[in-house]
Amino acid sequence: MTYSEAEIAATIDHAILKPKLTRSEVDAELDVAVQWKVFSVCVRPSDIPYVAERLAGTGVAVGTVIGFPHGTTSTAAKVAEVRQALADGAVELDMVLNIGWLRSGFDDAVEADIRAVVAAADGHVVKVIFETSYLDADEIVRACRATEAAGADFVKTSTGFGGGGATLEDVRLMRASVGPDVQVKSSGGVRSLERAVAMLDAGCTRLGTSATATILGEARAIAEGRSATGAVDDTSY
Rank of each mutant, 00 (worst) to 15 (best):
A87C: 02
S74N: 01
L97Q: 06
A120R: 10
G71W: 09
F106M: 11
E131I: 00
G123M: 04
I114C: 04
A109Q: 14
V118L: 09
N98W: 03
L93K: 07
L97Y: 01
A112S: 12
K78A: 10
G105S: 08
V82D: 15
D94L: 00
V79W: 13
V128C: 11
I114F: 03
L97S: 04
H70L: 14
S74V: 04
L102M: 01
D94H: 01
D108A: 15
S74F: 01
D122W: 03
A61H: 07
H124F: 06
L86G: 02
L93W: 07
G67A: 07
G123N: 04
S133H: 03
V110Q: 12
G71S: 10
D94C: 01
T64A: 04
W101S: 05
V96G: 01
A137E: 14
R83T: 13
L86K: 04
S133N: 08
D122K: 02
V65I: 09
H124G: 10
V110T: 12
D107P: 00
A87H: 11
V82N: 15
T75I: 13
V96D: 08
E92S: 13
W101H: 09
E81H: 01
W101L: 09
G63E: 00
G63M: 02
S74A: 06
R115I: 03
G105M: 07
V110I: 13
V128Q: 09
I66D: 07
V126T: 13
A77E: 15
F106N: 04
I114M: 03
Q84L: 11
T73A: 08
G89W: 10
P69I: 04
E92K: 08
A90V: 10
A61I: 01
G123R: 02
K127H: 01
L102N: 01
L93A: 05
L86H: 06
R83H: 13
M95A: 09
K127S: 03
T64N: 10
V82S: 14
L97C: 07
G71T: 08
L97T: 04
V110Y: 11
A109V: 05
T64K: 06
T64D: 07
L86Q: 05
Y134G: 00
S74Y: 01
D88F: 14
A77Q: 15
D138I: 06
G89P: 10
F68G: 02
A137L: 04
T73Q: 07
E92N: 03
T75N: 12
V79I: 10
S133E: 05
A112M: 02
V110C: 14
S133C: 13
V125L: 14
G71N: 11
